[in-house]
Design a protein around this nucleic acid. Sequence first.
DNA 1: TTCCTTGCAAATCGTTTGCATAATG
DNA 2: CATTATGCAAACGATTTGCAAGGAA
Lengths: 130, 130
Amino acid sequence: MALKYSRQREAIKEFMMTRKDHPTADVVYMNVRKEFPNISLGTVYRNLTLLSDMGELLRLRVGDGVDHFDATITPHYHFICKECGAVTDLELDTMHSIDEAAGESFHGRIDGHVTYFYGTCEHCLKESSS
Amino acid sequence: MALKYSRQREAIKEFMMTRKDHPTADVVYMNVRKEFPNISLGTVYRNLTLLSDMGELLRLRVGDGVDHFDATITPHYHFICKECGAVTDLELDTMHSIDEAAGESFHGRIDGHVTYFYGTCEHCLKESSS
DNA sequence: TTCCTTGCAAATCGTTTGCATAATG
DNA sequence: CATTATGCAAACGATTTGCAAGGAA
């Protein structure tokens, strides 16, 4: 069960740190492959899953059928553009109050929530107006 | 493109109306099969997708890797039990205010949000205390 | 008769896993 | 040396799709 160092995992971590656009496993694979041409998709998945389980990454299920990964683990919200699918961070404090609001008419324990905001991103707004 | 009547689709719709627990395609399949033993999973998926696209059903991606379907199309929130995976409705008015809050520091258009509340349902709370 | 819908099976997609080998501690 | 990690390919589960046959308008 003890964790052992691996260059591949380190490269994956480092790549994730450089990106704030929440890449998918495939994107990570494509990029880490530049440094490790033989790395396999399986290894990428294994490490992304491992890091997520350890809490070093967030696995985001934004509803597009593909998992996205996020190296920013401090609580924050996400926005997904309906046009281009881009996933971006939002500056918005955690809304603990909505858990309470939801709990008022509910007979169980609410620990938290996951919220995704949808709409059109700045870039796509410009596209459509041109 | 014109829609034609089909008994299978009707049976799927009717089954969905009777359930407020957000069944998966497989559950729909198992049940509709009682009336139509020859119906195929493909047909179930085709109709659930069709109905969702027409807005007669909601397709919920609650994060467990399986799509859930909901015949209640008026806006409402959902709760997912971490223990048993049950998906239940919450009585909570649409929080338009959080879209505004999210939009304050964001340069794009926010149309809405999807929120899932997580925790332990009433039933599982009792289980664990016994 | 037109063309939408079905059942079936094969295909697809994202993700996970088994296994022999390589790397780490 | 003991054990974890890798690459590869096969397996997986959920969902979609191509196609020939059936049913609705």
